[in-house]
Amino acid sequence: MAAVRGLAGIGAGAALWLALAASASGQQSGKASGWQALEADGAEACFGRVYDKAHLKAHPNQKVQRIFFYRGGDPVSHPNEEPSSGSSYDSYLTTTERGAKKPDWVGAWCRAGVDEDGNPQGIHCGMECDRTLASLRFDAKGRLIVEKLDRYVYLDPSETAELEEEQYEKLALGTDDDGFALERRPAAECKAEFAKVDPIDPALGEPLRVRLKPDRPFCFGRDYTAAHLASNPEQVTKTIRVFRGPSELASYATAGRDLDNWPNGADIMVSVATRKASGTSVQSYSCDGEGDQWRCVATTKTSDADCDISSREIYLRRGAKGTMMLSNPANGLPLIDLCSAEAAEATASDDRIYRLEPMQPAECGL
């Protein structure tokens, strides 16, 4: 009987152990499925923590004072001039070290892993070039635990190879910057934190690719006064116009370009009058969106240049209060002969940067 009771006791203990294991497995599975639910429907989520002075005093090797983890669309990049400027990452981490004026940030792909039997194995966050950001898990309180955080995550090896070890360590995260327990926060709180990385200048407004439409003409320009020219004797330009008219619109339309790729392939015209010559010079350009600017390359549509002028470039950017900024760093404007030796050099005159005002089409001859 004793043997029977012993076997019965073992059976009860095993049943209890199995019940506890199943409960723990269910909790862990629920935590993993919560993350997998975020992956499935693309829902945004925010977790964060701000450490007080007492905590930081007790952890002198922790540099991070503020830390936020956000899952969702890119919270840092602004709408710019490129047709496709979104990040492929789905998760983002930002930290602010004690005494720092602005946060650092990084993006990653985070995925919930499973073993061969389908059991959860935590959440791995990877980056480009086979780098690892950190591992994630949820604790019993539902907090997101960020651990195995790469201390050198913000350092680009190609840019820091020449640094001394002491300086390299100074730029790295602290030796206690790991195992962060982050509370769930409203998504707006994470977005506000990431907005500190690169604050938007409200005066700039929408990018040019949003302001200027592929099927509408535009005209920007400036006429410099005698007083301005007298105070800037090295400036050659008297008047300048940048525009797209009916022929440029028709060329873009007949080329069958995808409007989602605007402004890539858009033709513009630039006309200039100088104090060195009579009359007006006109030059055509083909533009593509690159970062926060349009890169516009000279074309032969309006000239019979006997050289390759495709290396002659100008750049357009949005300016404050609806203006357009034109940059001419390397003699890309027809202020001189674009095939001359001078055109192969950096712009030597004061004709490098222009702030152009929006004008009526008639001001550009449209």
Score class of each variant (00 low, 15 high):
318 R>Q: 12
253 A>T: 07
302 T>W: 01
273 A>G: 14
249 L>Q: 14
331 N>I: 03
322 G>D: 04
278 S>C: 10
309 I>D: 04
294 W>E: 09
305 A>W: 03
277 A>F: 10
326 L>V: 12
337 D>G: 03
300 T>G: 05
259 L>I: 11
283 Q>L: 02
328 N>I: 01
255 A>H: 15
248 E>I: 03
292 D>L: 05
276 K>N: 14
305 A>H: 07
270 V>G: 06
278 S>T: 08
274 T>E: 04
332 G>K: 00
292 D>E: 12
330 A>Q: 05
274 T>W: 00
259 L>S: 07
272 V>S: 06
311 S>A: 12
260 D>W: 09
266 A>E: 07
283 Q>Y: 00
255 A>C: 12
281 S>Y: 12
250 A>R: 14
294 W>V: 06
275 R>Y: 05
292 D>M: 02
331 N>V: 13
320 A>M: 02
286 S>I: 14
287 C>N: 01
281 S>P: 00
295 R>P: 14
301 K>C: 08
337 D>V: 03
264 N>C: 00
268 I>R: 02
283 Q>G: 00
252 Y>L: 14
297 V>Q: 08
310 S>N: 10
283 Q>E: 04
293 Q>H: 14
313 E>C: 03
340 S>M: 06
334 P>L: 00
282 V>T: 06
326 L>E: 08
321 K>V: 00
255 A>P: 12
319 G>M: 09
254 T>K: 15
280 T>K: 13
289 G>F: 00
328 N>G: 00
309 I>W: 11
248 E>M: 02
260 D>A: 14
329 P>E: 03
324 M>T: 02
294 W>Q: 10
308 D>P: 05
331 N>R: 01
282 V>S: 06
304 D>W: 08
266 A>C: 10
257 R>I: 03
314 I>P: 06
305 A>E: 10
260 D>I: 05
271 S>Q: 15
255 A>V: 11
287 C>A: 04
290 E>L: 15
310 S>K: 12
337 D>Q: 07
253 A>D: 11
278 S>W: 06
303 S>D: 13
262 W>C: 01
251 S>N: 13
318 R>F: 08
269 M>H: 13
304 D>N: 09
301 K>Q: 15
325 M>P: 11
268 I>S: 00
322 G>M: 00
289 G>Y: 04
270 V>D: 08
260 D>V: 04
327 S>A: 15
313 E>H: 09
287 C>K: 07
302 T>S: 12
290 E>Y: 12
250 A>E: 14
285 Y>T: 01
302 T>G: 09
311 S>K: 14
337 D>M: 03
259 L>G: 08
332 G>V: 00
285 Y>R: 10
282 V>M: 08
341 A>P: 02
249 L>H: 10
278 S>A: 13
302 T>Y: 03
282 V>L: 09
278 S>I: 01
282 V>P: 08
337 D>F: 12
301 K>M: 05
275 R>N: 08
294 W>G: 09
266 A>N: 03
249 L>I: 14
277 A>Q: 13
